[in-house]
């Protein structure tokens, strides 16, 4: 649906990018944004995805890439307070934006209640989808409140795929984390 199949039979030369396109890439673009509260300005190749900017430019490797079709949610960060898939956003597009990654959640060495809840409820196994899950979970609370029923959480997690946990404990963690966000008044970032 999203993609038309690549013509596998086309001649290899046809697959080569036009020379002009390569040249066009020589021009960089300036981007200024705030990452976990720290202002950052960089001159970047326009094709730099937000996730690449975070991982490679900022060396914040907690944000992961798990697919190339904007489905798995391992790359979810908050942009201006809302969860987005950083693999499907150009860094250049978010000029002026505020980005929060998993590394920006804990304050003064104290874990965010949602981080605590994932540990307390064994909401992670291999840990790879976890940063995206936690960022999504906080976003769910921001949108849906701190009193979340199971069906709501399961539905709202449709943009995050976990292969390890079967979601059982993730759902428990999100609900508990939400409740704890309520009590700790840390709901909004």
């Amino acid at each position: 649906m999203f993609f038309r199949k690549k013509d596998s039979d086309r001649a290899p030369e046809a697959a080569a990018p036009p020379a002009a396109a390569a040249k066009a890439g020589d021009g960089t673009v300036s981007v200024s944004l705030t990452v976990n509260g720290t202002p950052v300005t960089a001159s970047i190749d326009p094709r730099t995805l937000l996730v690449q900017f975070i991982r490679e430019n900022q060396r914040l490797t907690g944000t992961h890439v798990g697919c190339d079709t904007s489905q798995c949610g391992a790359c979810v960060v908050h942009l201006d307070g809302r969860a987005v898939k950083s693999c499907t956003v150009l860094a250049a597009s978010v000029d002026g934006g505020k980005v929060t990654t998993i590394e920006g959640l804990a304050k003064d060495g104290k874990l965010h209640p949602m981080q605590e809840a994932f540990r307390e409820h064994h909401g992670l196994q291999c840990g790879y989808c976890t940063p995206g899950m936690i960022m999504s979970a906080i976003d769910i609370v921001n949108r849906k409140g701190t009193n979340l029923d199971e069906a709501t959480v399961r539905h709202e997690l449709e943009g995050n795929i976990c292969r390890c946990t079967g979601y059982h404990n993730i759902v428990a963690a999100v609900r508990a984390g939400a409740a704890n966000m309520s009590s700790s008044r840390q709901a909004a970032e």
Binding site: P17, G25, G27, V29, D45, L49
Partner: peptide, 9 residues
């Protein structure tokens, strides 16, 4: 991704 020029009107 192939390289491109970027404009932000």
């Amino acid at each position: 991704m192939y390289a491109f020029q970027y404009h932000r009107p």
